[in-house]
Design a protein around this nucleic acid. Structure first.
Length: 803
RNA sequence: GCGAGUAUGGCGGAAUUGGCAGACGCGCUAGACUUAGGAUCUAGUGUCCCAGACGUGCAGGUUCAACUCCUGUUACUCGCACCA
C-alpha cells in the first residue's frame, strides 16, 4: 500500500504542469490574499513547525479556491541575517552561496509537502531586484525627514571587537567569548517610528487582529498620559521629569536621574563625589535594561553630592541620586521620587535613609507605599499638599496640572515606551544603506536611478577592529563620488536590520516582477490587502509593528492604497519535541520533516500536524499519534471497497454529511483544524458502519479532506472517474438538514443527571416536563420531595429542583 | 520586573451562547483472524470505599446549573527593542 510516494509525486507534478495555483489579477473572481510568514532559509532545513502553519494556510487556500475565490498564496525567502554571515566567516564563502543552497533545500521540501504556493511570485529579500526597492524605500524615509543619524549606546564586546545583540550579550557577558560586555557609543541611522506611535495605536481599529495580538501591539507602544515637570537646580540649571502621578508632587523627597543620561554629564563639574559617581556610571554600562529595571534586585544608586534640586511646588530643596532603574532613553531620563506612593521609590528611600511624606490619605505608609492602583477611583483625599488638601485624587490631578501649566513649568504630555527604530547594523549580510558621506555636503542620499547598491564579493566577512561592518574594509565599495558636488566621498558601511526586508514583502508579492516600482498601485488595489496572515507568536509584537509602521509611512506619501495592509493576523503555537521542550540539536529531539514524508507520506504529516492539538497553542511531537493519522488515511483508502457504482447520497447519512460540511467549513476558517479532522474521522467511521456507500458519498469525504490531504484524495477521486478536486467546487450544505429532528437530552435532579429522554423538535415545554418526571431513575430521586421548580432549556436539558 | 498566554484521564486534546465533562485520536487490557504484523476486526478503558460518590492547577464566590462568569493564588511557556 505504500505507493504514496508515487501518488504524491504524480499530483505535485500535475499541479506544476497545469500551473494550478498561479493567479492573475484579471480574474473576475473575488480576490483573497492568504499569507504565511516567509522563512529564514537556515542551514538546518525546514522545521516541522513551518509545516504546521504552511499546512494550515494551505488548507484555507485550497478550500477557498474551490469556493470560487481568486486565492493568492505566495512564498519567498527572508534570507538576510546573522547565521548566514557566521557561516560565511567560518567557511570563507559568500553568504549568498549558502543562501542559494538553503533555498534549494527549503523549496524542495515545500514541494514534497504539496503546498499550493504560487511559485511564479517567489523572491528572496537578498535578491538585488528586491532589495533595490528596500533601499529605495529607505531613501523615501530619508527624504521625508523620517531617517536621521543619532549617537546611541550599543553592546560591545572588547575581545571579539564586535557589536552584540541583546541576546548575544545576555547577562552582560559575550555569548561567544565570555568577556564582559560594555556599552559603546555609536552613530546609527534611526527611523522616526515614535512619530507614528499614535497612528499605530489608532490604526489597530482598522484591523481584525486577534485580541492578544492587538494587546501585544498596544503594550509595545506603551502609551501613558501624564505631566512633564521642570525642576530647577540650586545654583543654576534645570531638568525635566515625566510623571503619571502629578497628584503626589508635594510628596517628592528626592529625584533620581539616569546614569546613562545627558544630565549627569552636565552636572559633573559640580559633583563633589566624582569618583563614586563615575564608578557607578561605569558599573551601569555593563547592565542591560532588563537587569536594571528588575524590581526584585536591590535599589542600587549613589547620591550626587554637591547638587540639590528644588521642588517647584513648595521650594523645598531635595537631593539628587543616580539610580540604574532610571533609563536614559525613556521619558526624560529623570524621575521624581515619592517614596510614600511608589513602591520602587519606597524601597530606594528605605535603603538610603531618605525622608518620606505621605500626601494621599487612606493607608498606612510606614511599611509599604500606597500606590496609584490602590488609591485611584477610591475617593481618597490629598494631605500635606498646601491648598490642594482635602481634594480627591482625581480633582487634584486636574487642579495641580492646571496650576503647573499656569506657572509655565508643567505640560500635559503623552509618553510612549516605543522608541525610534535603530536601523543600522554593523554587519555584512544586510541591505547596504544607500547613503554617502561627503566632506563638503554631509550625508547625501544616493541617486535613485543608481540603485541597487549591491553587496560586493569579498574574501573576509569579519568585522573591522573597531566593530564596523566588513564593508568598511573594501575601498572599492567605500570610496565614491558625492552625488551632489561630485567630490570624493565615502559610503555608509552599515547595513539594514533583518526586519527591513520583511516589513514590506507582502506588498511585493502583489506585483513581484515589477521593474519600475516596488509594486503598482493597480495591483495593490486589486488585492487590496493581506486578508489572512499567519506567523509565529514571537513575531506578533515587533515584526508586525515594524511592518505596520512601514506601510503607514508608504500610505502617507501616497504609495499604498490602505493605511493598514493586513486585515487578520493569527499566530500558531510551536511544535515541541517529544519531550515537551523546544526542539534543538543539543537536546537531540529534532524531527526532520523529510524523514516523516519518506516513511509516512506528506499527507500523513499534514493531517497529523493539523490534528495534533489546538493550533494556537504549542504541542509536543508524538510519533504514535502520527501513526494513528496514517491509519485514518488507510481507512479512507479502504472505504473505497464499499463504494457501489451508484450516484446520489445515502439517506441515512444525509444529516451527518450536511453537518460535516458545515463543521469543516467553519473550523477551517476559525483555526479549528483538529476538530475539522475529528469530524471527518466521525464521518468515515459512519461510512465504515454501512454495508455500502455511493460514489457521491465517497467523493464528498474526499473533497472535505482534500485541503489537508491533497494527494491521496486526488488519487482516489481520479480512480472513481471524477474531475480533479483542485478543479472542482466545494460542496454546499443545507442548514435545515443539519438539524436533528429527534434528540436525547439529559434530565437532572438538583443538577445531577438522573436520566435521559428523547424529544423531538415539535415537543412543547409541558410535555417535556411531564415525560422528564416519568423517568424511572428520576422518580426515585424526586419521590416524597417538594418540587421547587423545573427548568427546561429547549433542546438541551431539563433540571428538576427539589427540597 | 513589565506585557501576553496556558493549566481538563496514562498521553494529545474536545465541549461555538453557562446546559449530560472527557468528542476524536494515541496508549493500554481482553478476544477474533492468523502463524509473528508498527495489519485488520470485536469489546472495554477518568478515579474510588462502584445501587452511589468524587472529578477540569489551587482556595473561595455567583447560579437551578460553572472547564466556561467573578475574586484571590500557584506553576509553566513566549516577548521585552542588534536572533530570526
Amino acid at each position: 500500500m505504500d505507493n504514496f510516494k508515487k501518488i504524491e509525486k504524480k499530483w505535485q507534478d500535475y499541479w506544476d504542469k497545469h500551473k494550478t495555483f498561479e493567479v492573475k489579477e484579471d480574474s473576475d473572481k473575488k480576490p483573497y490574499y492568504i499569507l504565511v510568514e516567509f522563512p529564514y532559509p537556515s542551514g538546518s532545513g525546514l522545521h516541522v513547525g513551518h509545516v504546521r502553519s504552511y499546512t494550515a494556510q494551505d488548507a484555507i487556500a485550497r478550500m477557498m479556491r474551490m469556493q470560487g475565490y481568486n486565492v493568492l498564496y505566495p512564498m519567498g525567502w527572508d534570507s538576510f541575517g546573522a547565521p548566514a554571515e557566521q557561516y560565511a566567516i567560518k567557511n570563507h564563502i559568500h553568504p549568498k552561496e549558502a543562501v542559494k543552497e538553503n533555498i534549494k533545500t527549503f523549496k524542495g521540501q515545500m514541494k514534497s509537502l504539496g503546498f499550493s504556493f504560487d511559485w511564479s511570485r517567489e523572491f528572496a529579500t537578498t535578491d538585488p531586484d528586491y532589495y533595490k526597492w528596500t533601499q529605495w524605500q529607505f531613501l523615501q524615509f530619508y527624504k521625508h525627514g523620517m531617517a536621521y543619524k543619532a549617537t546611541i549606546p550599543v553592546n560591545w564586546c572588547p575581545t571579539c571587537k564586535s557589536v552584540l545583540s541583546n541576546e548575544d550579550a545576555a547577562g552582560g557577558v559575550c555569548e561567544r567569548c565570555g568577556s564582559q560586555v560594555v556599552q559603546k557609543e555609536k552613530s546609527q541611522w534611526m527611523l522616526r517610528m515614535s512619530d507614528y506611535a499614535e497612528d499605530l495605536l489608532t490604526g489597530l481599529e482598522d484591523t481584525n487582529f486577534a485580541d492578544r495580538v492587538k494587546l501585544g501591539q498596544i503594550n509595545w507602544i506603551g502609551k501613558s498620559t501624564g505631566v512633564e515637570l521642570d525642576v530647577d537646580i540650586v545654583g543654576g540649571g534645570k531638568f525635566s521629569v515625566f510623571t503619571t502621578c502629578i497628584e503626589t508632587v508635594y510628596g517628592i523627597t528626592f529625584f533620581v536621574i539616569a546614569p546613562d543620561g545627558k544630565l549627569i554629564k552636565e552636572l559633573m563639574p559640580r559633583v563633589e563625589n566624582k569618583d563614586e559617581v563615575e564608578a557607578y556610571i561605569k558599573e551601569t554600562a555593563t547592565k542591560s535594561n532588563m537587569d536594571r529595571t528588575e524590581l526584585n534586585k536591590g535599589k542600587t544608586g549613589v547620591e550626587v553630592k554637591g547638587v540639590k534640586a528644588i521642588n517647584p511646588v513648595n521650594g523645598k530643596e531635595v537631593p539628587i541620586f543616580l539610580g540604574d532603574f532610571v533609563l536614559g532613553d525613556y521619558g526624560t531620563g529623570a524621575v521624581m521620587a515619592v517614596p510614600s506612593h511608589d513602591q520602587r521609590d519606597f524601597e530606594y528611600a528605605t535603603e538610603h535613609n531618605l525622608e518620606m511624606i505621605q500626601v494621599i490619605d487612606g493607608a498606612d505608609v510606614s511599611k509599604k507605599a500606597f500606590e496609584k492602583h490602590e488609591y485611584l477611583g477610591k475617593d481618597c483625599k490629598l494631605m500635606n499638599s498646601a491648598e490642594f488638601d482635602g481634594l480627591t485624587v482625581e480633582e487634584a490631578k486636574e487642579k495641580i496640572t492646571e496650576k503647573l501649566e499656569e506657572m509655565g513649568i508643567g505640560r500635559r504630555v503623552n509618553n510612549y515606551k516605543m522608541r525610534d527604530w535603530i536601523f543600522s547594523r554593523q554587519r555584512f549580510w544586510g541591505e547596504p544603506i544607500p547613503m554617502i558621506n561627503c566632506p563638503k555636503c554631509g550625508w547625501v542620499p544616493m541617486n535613485e536611478e543608481d540603485l541597487p547598491l549591491v553587496l560586493p564579493d569579498v574574501a573576509e566577512y569579519e568585522p573591522t577592529e573597531d566593530g564596523e561592518s566588513p564593508l568598511a574594509n573594501i575601498p572599492e565599495f567605500v570610496n565614491c563620488k558625492c552625488p551632489k558636488c561630485g567630490g570624493d566621498a565615502k559610503r555608509e558601511t552599515d547595513t539594514m536590520p533583518n526586519w527591513a526586508g520583511s516589513s514590506w514583502y507582502f506588498l511585493r508579492f502583489m506585483d513581484p516582477h515589477n521593474t519600475h516600482e516596488f509594486a503598482s498601485m493597480d495591483k495593490m488595489k486589486y488585492w487590496n490587502r493581506v486578508d489572512w496572515y499567519n506567523g509565529g507568536m514571537e513575531h506578533t509584537a515587533r515584526h508586525l509593528l515594524y511592518a505596520r509602521f512601514w506601510v503607514q509611512f508608504l500610505y502617507n506619501i501616497g504609495l499604498v492604497p490602505n493605511k493598514e495592509m493586513i486585515w487578520t493576523r493569527v499566530s500558531h503555537g510551536m511544535v515541541l519535541g517529544a519531550d515537551g521542550v523546544k526542539m534543538s540539536k543539543s537536546k537531540g529531539n529534532v524531527i526532520n520533516p523529510d524523514d516523516i514524508v519518506n516513511e509516512f507520506g506528506a499527507d500523513t504529516l499534514r493531517i497529523y500536524e493539523m490534528f495534533m492539538g489546538d493550533y494556537q497553542l504549542e504541542a509536543p511531537w508524538n510519533t504514535d499519534s502520527l501513526r494513528g493519522c496514517k491509519r485514518f488515511l488507510d481507512k479512507v483508502i479502504r472505504l473505497k471497497d464499499k463504494v457501489e457504482d451508484k450516484a446520489g447520497y445515502t439517506d441515512t447519512l444525509e444529516a451527518l454529511q450536511n453537518k460535516t460540511i458545515k463543521k469543516v467549513e467553519y473550523d477551517l476558517t476559525h483555526m479549528g483544524y483538529n476538530t475539522a479532522i475529528s469530524s471527518l474521522m466521525i464521518l468515515s467511521n459512519a461510512y465504515d458502519e454501512k454495508e455500502s456507500i455511493t460514489k457521491d458519498d465517497y467523493r464528498l469525504l474526499l473533497i472535505l479532506l482534500n485541503p489537508m490531504a491533497p494527494h491521496i484524495t486526488e488519487e482516489l477521486n481520479e480512480e472513481l472517474g471524477f474531475n480533479p478536486i483542485c478543479e472542482s467546487e466545494w460542496p454546499e450544505y443545507d442548514e435545515e438538514k443539519t438539524i436533528e429532528n429527534v434528540k436525547d437530552i439529559a434530565v437532572q435532579v438538583n443538577g445531577k443527571v438522573r436520566g435521559t429522554i428523547q424529544i423531538s423538535i415539535e415537543d412543547d415545554e409541558q410535555s417535556i416536563k411531564e415525560r422528564a418526571m416519568e423517568c424511572e431513575n428520576v422518580k426515585k430521586h424526586i419521590d416524597g420531595k417538594e418540587i421547587v421548580k423545573v427548568i427546561v432549556i429547549k433542546g438541551k436539558i431539563v433540571n428538576i429542583v427539589v427540597k
